[in-house]
Design a protein around this nucleic acid. Structure first.
Lengths: 229, 229
DNA sequence: TTATTTCGGTATAATATTGGTTCATAATTG
DNA sequence: CAATTATGAACCAATATTATACCGAAATAA
């Protein structure tokens, strides 16, 4: 939660805590939860509140409660947020983008529509007003690359780009990324975005792909530059 | 509205912050947000402002607010995962492989080890004994491409290849795929696999990538050929 | 086996917390 | 300047939480 250090816990909060215990593996399949009265004690809540929390978890399919016996874990956590995404390194991400994005440019030439390009154009314009706000810039930058992927009309590719977008927003190294984003670099990015968009508009797939490669090379450089400091 | 350092937060800003909390997983599905009054306090805004932000998030479908109870997270962006994979078409998959696999060849040249190549070699040998068992062949074929991805040592790429491997095993069009796999086609694939592996072993990234493109083009052709029948 | 303890299931009334609303005032923006 | 937006306080209605008591099912010990 956001800042719930010393706050009275409600049923939803207790449910949230237990949900995390389960998906982190501290409470495993078929484990029995502590008795309601004990949970009430450890969380500093009344038994009725704990009971509501358990009812919530039961309706979500996490636990099963047997009268007279106890409450048991029934749900093995779905690996929604996969390790590969959470532990991906910046360099792994760069290599992946090197694989995907130039070809995405080619596909955009094939399948993109006027409206897609117009949307990307307006994103370019917005980015050009953000040369001294690295944080806002990189958010719009993500939107641009997402819009580019969207113009391929390829649901699978779009999904992949979305997934690795979650990597990009990973805390500890977006920070690193922002360190390297001075106004000069941002201007360079903006110019490259425009060139890519123009090449796609004029239906030059290889040129678009090549500029994208340059663009990624620029990004990789500023990344390694940041890693050295 | 450009400065992000230390400024009074508007409704849109607070909405953006909360949206980030949700998409980063700090606020998970079914979690209850802190009470409006507390949010107002932590963000240094009036309750009415927080309230506007929450209304925004509710109209975007991120949260749901229940009078007398609280505001709850009802949407996490990462849970759309399986749709894209389950509904991907064979052609979408081909385009995606066109994006990924040639570059994977290049990375394999950079990061692959002797043991990786030996493993791929033995897969090649096994495939060459399966010219008249399309089903077994395509299973080993998947293994080969997976092993190729593995040789990049890039966890993110490997994960992506694994994911789209689930697409390839989709029932109704593995059937379509097997229709096109006569002995002649399989022999062609086998030859291309060998060529790719050799190019990687001799450290020729571009040649490996180009043969992979040919390989995929061959696969695409036999796919469209199957679709016409 | 029986007796005892532990556990969840249920009920109740008083109290606390939460979102919903309104309004006059101050601040910010164009 | 005018217009929009944020503020802070008050009050209302809906809901949650608490504290307590008692019941029946299940596990445990004699």
């Amino acid at each position: 939660m956001i800042e719930s250090s010393e706050q009275k816990l409600g049923a939803a909060d207790i449910a949230a805590l237990l949900r995390r215990e389960i998906s982190k593996g501290f409470l495993q399949l078929h484990d029995r939860l502590p008795p309601e009265r004990m949970l009430a004690d450890t969380y500093g809540a009344a038994r009725g509140t704990v009971r509501k929390a358990l009812t919530l978890l039961e309706s979500e399919g996490f636990v099963e409660t047997r009268p007279g016996s106890g409450t048991y874990v029934v749900h093995t956590p779905a690996d929604t947020s996969s390790d590969a995404i959470e532990n991906a390194t910046p360099l792994e991400l760069m290599d992946t983008r090197f694989a995907l994005e130039p070809h995405i440019c080619r596909l955009s030439v094939l399948h993109g529509r006027r409206a897609d390009f117009d949307a990307m154009e307006s994103l370019c314009s917005r980015m050009e007003t953000l040369t001294d706000d690295p944080l806002a810039f990189s958010e719009v930058d993500s939107e641009f690359h997402r819009a580019l992927a969207g113009s391929t009309r390829n649901g699978l590719l779009i999904w992949i780009i979305d997934q690795i977008g979650h990597v990009r927003s990973q805390d500890d190294w977006t920070r690193m990324r922002h360190l390297t984003l001075d106004a000069r670099t941002i201007n360079q990015y903006n110019a490259q975005h425009r060139q890519i968009l123009n090449a796609i508009r004029t239906r030059e797939p290889e040129r678009a792909a090549n500029i994208m490669k340059e663009h990624l090379e620029t990004a990789r450089l500023s990344l390694t530059r940041a890693a050295e400091t």
